[in-house]
Design a protein around this nucleic acid. Structure first.
Length: 710
DNA sequence: GAGCACTGC
């Protein structure tokens, strides 16, 4: 511990508390200068601590993050991300290399840390070799955490925060919060003494619009009416070099106005901010386990978040926070805490992880800090059963263990295992890696928009002829997104991973490089996990060496698509007989359309798209959409269908009849209101009634005779 | 014919 830090006088107390207790909670302000990414933070923290201890990173102090590990036999302290620790537990469930585990930033309540809470709490009690758990947090419901960890002691360490004066609005701005935020910022700029301003908005489009508006307003002001103003947008999707502009101090006498997403709430700390404008909303993802549908909706923040945002004004000196909602709203209506991620996300991966620990965990009765809810767990169990990861009694299978060992979502893991058997593993590795990188095309576009040159609202940019030809050729194949992702990677590899080629093709360099790293990691893992005898892997060779139009007559992609079908059997959809809408083949069948960002699918002479396809996600925005799809041959699907109908969830969940009171989770199970237009989608009451669809289709075709649709 | 917040094994 360094001299002069606020925590210094507490050293003895902390050491004594940790020594005498299995669990300890330390509440205090986090240090300044947190870096942008968690992995980078782990790395830089390791470096800083190594420096303070006068050692090298990797000697006494090491780190372990995805794609990079630096530890040695001499390492005493290792910094790692929550995901890395979970991975480590799969190989070493006792974690016997560690005697004390510190969970930093526990208040952030990521899915991973919540899983760690439960698992580590159990481990502290069961492990023969003593283990201590320390939680550190900025703000958190200390009583709740302490109660969960057997009434453990809570230490409060005063921070270095300056005071922040909070002002509420006279009225609420549910609808016009963005405009109100712009007005507030301009007002601050005109009437308040020097100091940077930080506005929280919910997304890129909103921020770009606000920045444009602010720029115009300021330009229209008479010369000398106000000081110089530098307006800086800030969101995760923008290039890193633009993000880092906020770390450069402004010129003398110039005020900065930072218009940011939630990234400025915790991930990026901007020094110099004195005024915060908080509209009280955030864009948040949630998942409905009943339909398997995701929504990304503008949601009210919690009082904890509002406090965190206000705190951003007090980093360098006393500041002010302007809340665009009333004090009454804040006190009476605003949620006290943010719904933890575990209560608004799919539990698929987490359940597979818990099941693969050698503890025979009953995931319904597991000791969660906040229970994810029965519907979310049953949804996960059902999907894991379809993928063969658990048996009818809910026990993990050998397949499940092999899946859990791969750092990709269960469907992708299952695809890889199937691909090994179907002799198309190298290509499947490529698809898996490309699916891991969520942004492939720059500017949040799909392949068809890129080909057309759409750059968003009205803007067009001519694609170079060579790129247009190459992309057009790929899209002609008509086999959907997975195969297109394969073709893009293969072409990029052919171009020696050229960044210039990426730019020409409008591919996102960050996403593509990430995919390349993931592919490398996965390739390593499947080799070690003995997916295939070495000989076989050598025979299958590298994906790119095979030419697209080779002599195998499409068998390459057939095998790959079959592997994808096996992996994504939990996300199968069937086209309606008379139009191009699809019905998902899950518990609560939902009608959905192909998202305009999907790669084109070959259609028949009536313009109808394939009878069956798998999708990677079902998202409700303006309507319900299937995104990232892969078409399937009906005869392949027939083998899969029986397993989908015949699921006994009671048995999967260990025949549990215990009632679990989960009030919050019940709320989480329902997507926030206001995101989906009423009547924009239909939840069909009948389950998976294929025969009636067949019959309807037959009647329709008979009526229509051979008359083409168009 | 839509539009993705934030993480990171």
């Amino acid at each position: 511990m360094q001299q002069g830090l606020p925590i210094r006088p507490f050293k003895a107390t902390i050491l004594e508390t940790v020594a005498q207790n299995e669990f300890s909670i330390i509440i205090g302000e986090t240090g300044s200068g947190k870096t942008t990414q968690v992995a980078q933070a782990a790395l830089s923290v390791a470096r800083r601590v190594a420096e303070e201890m006068d050692t090298d990173v990797g000697a006494e102090v090491g780190y372990s993050v995805r794609f990079d590990e630096r530890t040695s036999a001499r390492t005493r302290i290792v910094y790692l991300t929550d995901g890395t620790l979970l991975r480590e537990m799969l190989d070493n469930p006792e974690l016997d290399a560690y005697s004390v585990i510190v969970l930093d930033e526990a208040h952030e309540r990521s899915l991973n840390t919540d899983v760690l809470f439960g698992v580590l709490k159990g481990l502290v009690k069961s492990r023969k070799k003593p283990l201590k758990l320390v939680l550190t947090s900025a703000t958190l419901d200390a009583e709740k955490f302490s109660a969960y960890f057997d009434g453990c002691p809570v230490l409060h360490i005063p921070g270095r925060q300056y005071s922040v004066q909070v002002a509420f609005s006279e009225e609420n701005h549910e609808k016009d919060y963005a405009a109100a935020a712009v007005d507030a910022a301009l007002d601050l700029h005109l009437h308040q003494p020097p100091g940077d301003i930080l506005i929280f908005l919910t997304g890129q489009a909103e921020i770009d619009k606000a920045v444009k508006q602010l720029t115009e307003e300021v330009a229209a002001m008479p010369e000398g009416a106000c000081p110089d103003l530098l307006i800086l947008p800030l969101y995760a999707a923008m290039p890193l070099e633009l993000q880092t502009r906020v770390f450069t101090p402004p010129p003398e006498g110039c005020r900065r106005l930072i218009v940011a997403t939630n990234i400025a709430e915790t991930s990026i700390t901007v020094d110099g901010v004195v005024y915060v404008v908080d509209p009280g909303v955030v864009k948040q993802k949630s998942y409905n386990p009943a339909t398997g549908m995701e929504t990304l909706a503008i949601t009210a923040i919690s009082r904890v978040q509002a406090t965190q945002r206000a705190g951003r004004a007090g980093r360098t000196r006393n500041g002010k926070c302007y809340r665009l909602y009333t004090q009454k709203y804040f006190e009476r209506d605003m949620p006290a805490e943010t719904l933890p991620e575990i209560q608004r996300t799919s539990m698929l991966t987490a359940v597979l992880f818990l099941k693969s620990l050698p503890l025979d965990i009953d995931v319904l009765a597991f000791d969660y800090l906040d229970h994810p809810g029965r519907p979310a767990l049953e949804d996960a169990l059902r999907q894991l059963y379809i993928l063969g990861a658990i048996d009818v009694d809910g026990h993990i299978t050998g397949m499940g263990r092999r899946m859990a060992a791969l750092p990709v979502e269960p469907s992708v893991a299952r695809t890889l295992i199937a691909a090994a058997e179907l002799h198309c593993l190298p290509d499947a590795l490529t698809v898996a890696a490309m699916l891991s990188a969520e942004t492939i095309f720059s500017g949040n576009r799909g392949p068809q928009q890129v080909l057309r040159g759409d750059e968003g609202k009205g803007k067009q940019s001519a694609l170079p002829d060579s790129a247009r030809a190459a992309l057009g050729q790929m899209l002609k194949e008509g086999l959907g997104d997975h195969i297109l992702l394969l073709r893009l990677y293969q072409a990029w590899e052919q171009q020696s991973f050229s960044p210039k080629w990426c730019r020409e093709m409008r591919l996102d360099a960050r996403g593509m490089n990430f995919a390349r790293e993931v592919r490398r990691q996965l390739t390593d893992l499947v080799k070690r996990a003995d997916f295939l005898p070495d000989k076989e892997l050598a025979v299958q060779g590298k994906s790119s060496k095979r030419k697209r139009d080779d002599s195998d007559g499409g068998q390459t992609t057939d095998a790959l698509r079959r592997a994808v079908l096996i992996g994504f059997a939990n996300r199968l959809a069937r086209r309606m007989s008379q139009h191009n809408g699809y019905k998902t083949l899950n518990e609560h069948s939902t009608l959905a359309q192909l998202h305009p960002s999907t790669a084109p699918l070959a259609s028949d002479e009536y313009g109808l798209t394939p009878d069956y396809l798998i999708y990677t996600s079902l998202v409700a925005t303006a309507r319900v959409f299937l995104s990232k799809v892969c078409p399937m041959e009906p005869e392949w699907v027939q083998c899969i269908l029986p397993k989908l109908w015949d699921i006994d969830v009671k048995r999967l969940s260990g025949g549990a009849t215990t009632e679990i009171a989960v009030v919050q989770a019940e709320q989480a199970a329902h997507a926030p209101e206001g995101t989906v237009k009423k009547g924009a989608y239909v939840v069909l009451p009948r389950k998976n009634d294929v025969s009636s669809v067949d019959a309807a289709r037959a009647r329709y075709l008979a009526r229509r005779g051979s008359r083409p649709l168009k």
